Simulated scan of single mutants.
Amino acid sequence: MIKVIVNGAKGKMGQEVVKAIQKEADLALVGQTDLGDDLAKAIKSTQAEVVVDFTHPRSVMENVRTILENGAHGVIGTTGLTKENLEEIKKLCEKNKVSCLVAPNFAIGAVLMMQFAKEAIKYFPQAEIIEMHHESKADKPSGTALKTMEAMGKEVPIHSVRLPGLVAHQEVIFGGLGQTLTIRHDSLSRESFMPGVMLAIRKVKTLNGLVYGLEKIL
């Protein structure tokens, strides 16, 4: 039984993660924390092994420091982390002998979209990314778009759309002589992320330090 705390439990993603964990026989939800709660105290009092964080780009690094410095492993779905942030997380993992999985997107289909885009760019060097999310998403461009561009190995234009009615959607459009190719993924509900989050919770303790991207554990 893996003891898990969900940080950001009052948010839409946090609520979905709470429900998903409660359905899993091998996972124990030992805490639900949010803004204003003492995360360090919660980790110590529950002896949580894993903390899942879906909070806000402004607070995510403080949360990660608290998680790792208190001996828990991290599953981080909050986006907006910089390369400097990732380097700090790597050092924190080494110092505290814990591991941390950071994933811009936990949907299996989104991971496949990135892999397909990585292949397509070899044959269609001109491409652009359109990422579309709900109006309350704090960061732009999205972590998924940035991770896709990283996988493609070159800078391409990224267009961000924030509108009511959207959840999480992305198109990678490639243009060539007399043809175009579009690779698209749509998350129609937040349930689409749950299999990836559950997999990350189960795998994170076996990882070595920082792992960036869900594709690394598939």
Rank of each mutant, 00 (worst) to 15 (best):
D37C: 04
H134F: 08
T46D: 07
V30P: 01
C100G: 02
A145R: 07
G178Y: 05
H73S: 02
V98S: 10
A151G: 03
I121N: 08
V156C: 08
T78K: 00
L112H: 08
C100T: 03
D186C: 11
K10C: 11
Q22T: 11
G71I: 10
V167F: 02
T79D: 15
P104G: 02
A9Q: 05
M194E: 11
H56M: 05
D34C: 02
I130V: 15
G11H: 03
F193L: 13
K19D: 09
E87V: 06
G109R: 02
L163R: 13
Y212R: 04
G109T: 12
M194N: 09
E191K: 15
K83W: 01
V30F: 13
S142V: 01
Y123H: 11
G109Y: 04
A72W: 02
H134R: 14
N63K: 05
G213Y: 08
K19I: 06
I183A: 02
K137C: 06
C100E: 08
R58C: 06
T82I: 12
G165K: 07
T66K: 08
P141T: 05
G74R: 06
M194W: 09
V111F: 00
V30Y: 12
L177V: 13
A138W: 13
L86G: 10
G14S: 10
I5M: 13
V52T: 09
V172I: 15
A107T: 02
I158V: 15
I201P: 00
G176V: 09
Q115D: 00
V211M: 04
K90R: 15
Y212H: 12
I43F: 12
T78I: 01
K90A: 13
K137L: 11
E171H: 04
E49C: 06
M198H: 01
F124E: 00
H73R: 01
N208W: 08
V6I: 11
Y123R: 09
E62H: 10
A117L: 00
H134L: 02
I2N: 08
L35G: 08
G36H: 10
I67A: 09
L27E: 12
K91E: 15
R184G: 07
G11S: 05
M114L: 06
A107V: 01
L166I: 07
T55D: 05
K44V: 12
S189N: 11
I5W: 15
